[in-house]
Simulated assay, not measured.
Amino acid sequence: MSSGILFEVDNHIARVTLDRPKALNSIDPEMDAALFEAWTEINSNPDIWVAVLGATGEKAFCAGANVSGGTEGDGRRMALGGGLTGVGGPMLTLRKPLIAAVQGYAIGGGFELAMCADIIVAADNAQFGIPETKVGIIGEAGIMHRAIRQLPHHIAMALILTGERIDAQQAERYGLVNEVVPYEKLLETAWSWADRIASASPLAVQAAKDAVLSRAGWPLDIALATRYEPIEAYANSADRIEGRAAFADKRAARWSGR
């Protein structure tokens, strides 16, 4: 991986760490390119079943960035967060479950990056904010579209219009985060969530995520009538056979992700 992030895989779990603490883990073009490489590897590697996104240092998860200049060398504009947000360039869809471990400031693009996760664990010092109107900068509006979908309407509008922040406890109360823990337990808790997901059939998990998110904005009748290719493909997988055998034998399943 390029500089700006740390990347490691352990027991089917990928750990992606934003590693520019002196810059509040704000995302520059080099870091953006490294994140794109990380998500691409996670998507393509069948031995990676879950990902955890964290950051170095206690002060900030990510203070956002301006990466509209793109990545040197290939001439293309990449979206903030390596394509995960779809802001400033093409969106990259992460097929594997993603857990965000958020501490300190998660503002602007950093808040948006956290909202791209399937599960958010927050340290008790976390703060979430949309500062655009407060500082007089309005560019891409992705963070606003995500906030209005993930928070109660009036809470999201208050954040957008005032530029003020909410803390971890408020975020939990509004359903934005799954769990709030002391900073010292943040990564341990995020890893516990990852372990719980990794104990399930990885192909079933991926198929479920695809089905839910691909029809999240559609009417229920259309969602119910849709045929989902990953679910249909799972019917002929080794994991489905193993799941049935493990249930019959009353033992823990030994998933292969294939």
Rank of each mutant, 00 (worst) to 15 (best):
D19E: 12
V16K: 04
V87G: 03
V102K: 12
P46G: 08
F128Q: 06
V181C: 05
R251G: 01
L159K: 03
I148D: 00
I143Q: 00
R20A: 10
I160Y: 08
D195W: 14
T162Y: 06
E232K: 04
F247E: 13
A204Q: 13
R173T: 08
I120H: 01
D124M: 01
M115Y: 13
I120N: 00
R165T: 11
R146N: 09
H12C: 09
G142F: 14
A51I: 10
G139C: 10
I137R: 12
A208I: 02
G108Y: 13
D124F: 00
N11K: 10
A63L: 04
A141Q: 07
G82F: 13
I5C: 08
V121S: 01
R227D: 14
V87T: 14
R146G: 01
I48C: 07
A123Y: 00
L203I: 05
I119P: 01
M144C: 08
W39T: 01
A204H: 11
N66Y: 14
P152F: 12
R149G: 09
L92A: 07
R76P: 03
L186S: 07
Q127N: 11
S237L: 02
G243H: 13
Q206L: 05
I27E: 04
F7S: 07
R244D: 05
D10R: 14
E30I: 07
L213N: 10
E172C: 02
F61A: 01
E229Y: 00
N236D: 12
W218P: 00
A248P: 00
G243F: 12
D74Q: 12
E8I: 09
S3R: 15
I231R: 10
L220V: 04
